[in-house]
Amino acid sequence: MSTVTEPFTGSRPEPGAFVHPALFYRDDDEYLAGTVPFVREGLAGGEPVAVAVPGERLALIRDALGADAERVRLLDMREAGRNPGRIIPGVLRAFADAQPADRRVRIIGEPIWAGRSGTEYPACAQHEALINDAFEGRAVTILCPYDAVRLDAAVLADAHATHPVVIPAGSAGELPSTAYDPAGVVARYNAPLPPGPDAPVLSFPFAAGSLPDARHAATGAAGRLGLGGVRLDDLALVTAELTTNSVVHGGGAGVLRLWAEDGYVVCEVRDRGRLTDPLAGRRPASRDQRGGRGLLLVNLVCDLVRTHTGPDGTTVRTWFAV
């Protein structure tokens, strides 16, 4: 294992300011030079520190930290962030909100890696863009590593658009991103979803009086496709939340569709409503909050959630691994 000697030299943030740099790296040495000193600086300053990166990268950081690793919250992003929509509420905010209000929080989050599928990536890009709104005005620093060798050029370009500052590969210094445009990224990836099958296993128009029937039809079809146990219960919960949301907020009716795809059961709900808040389902619910938890629950239990909203309505598509 190489010894990390280069210090992390990111700029010192203003009190109460959110900081969100992208770190580009080409190999393990550059990865460790950008992440381990970042962690140690946080620990030395009394800051709570979390690291949420893919398992193989997590092992590198853990080994390089040695005994200091015991003072860091370590999470495998392949598991904790399988669905990009759960990373803000279930990983980043879950850690930051649990810390004392008078301390800056420091997090390494790597939600995009070379193994991410093309189906997952649009949700990843939107996640990175939405972090900026989710933490605006918070004393939090989130460093996001990007593999400059294995990731596509378009992914690296998006990183410049979703991060206000960048750390180029081989450099320890921050630069302002001249391409920063998180709202543009959110809008660009709010594209119509790829069409599902012409003849799905289930296509069920529903309204207020048929919500229980829609849920039973979905669980029956998913069970026949091999989904069972807790995951079948999760699908029942998601179906109930999405169809109820359509009745209450989406014009009173919708269509539920379900099919099998590449080892997943895919469940989709379409209605005529308009989803106007890009952070809907990505904010943790406050203790005294009434309602508004439906999309949050959907993000927390699904393996992937993709949405598209436009003048003609909204589609929410969810994936459950069989």
Rank of each mutant, 00 (worst) to 15 (best):
C124T: 08
A98E: 09
I88C: 01
A98V: 06
P145A: 02
N132F: 12
A148G: 04
T119C: 09
N83A: 07
R86F: 04
T141G: 07
A157L: 15
L74W: 03
R106V: 11
D97R: 03
C124N: 09
E79C: 07
S171A: 14
G81V: 01
T119K: 15
D133M: 11
R103Y: 09
G81R: 00
T162Q: 01
H127M: 13
D152T: 13
T141H: 06
S117I: 09
R104T: 10
A123T: 04
T162Y: 01
F95M: 04
Y146A: 03
I107A: 11
D147H: 02
V166Q: 02
P168K: 04
P111V: 00
P168E: 06
A157P: 09
A129D: 04
V149F: 06
R104N: 07
P84H: 01
Q126V: 14
P164L: 08
H127V: 06
H160E: 14
W113T: 13
A98Y: 07
C124P: 01
M77S: 12
V166A: 01
I131F: 07
G90H: 09
G118W: 13
A114K: 13
G137P: 09
A134R: 01
P84C: 04
A123K: 03
R106K: 09
M77P: 04
S117F: 09
D158C: 14
D133W: 15
H163V: 02
H127L: 15
N132M: 11
R78A: 12
E136N: 12
I142H: 04
A96T: 04
E128N: 12
I108P: 04
R93D: 12
R116G: 10
T141D: 13
I112E: 00
E79V: 14
E136W: 11
G81H: 04
W113Q: 10
G85P: 05
R93T: 12
A134K: 05
I167C: 07
A172M: 11
S171K: 12
I142D: 05
I107P: 03
G137Q: 08
A101E: 12
E136A: 15
L143I: 06
D76M: 04
H160Q: 15
A98N: 07
R106T: 12
H127I: 07
D76H: 03
A159L: 02
D158F: 05
A101W: 06
A125S: 13
P168G: 05
A148T: 07
P100H: 03
R82W: 02
A134E: 05
T141Y: 08
R150A: 14
Y146S: 03
L156M: 11
V155D: 06
P145V: 00
L130M: 15
V105F: 08
F95L: 00
F95V: 04
L74S: 10
G118M: 11
F95H: 01
A134L: 11
I142N: 04
V166L: 03
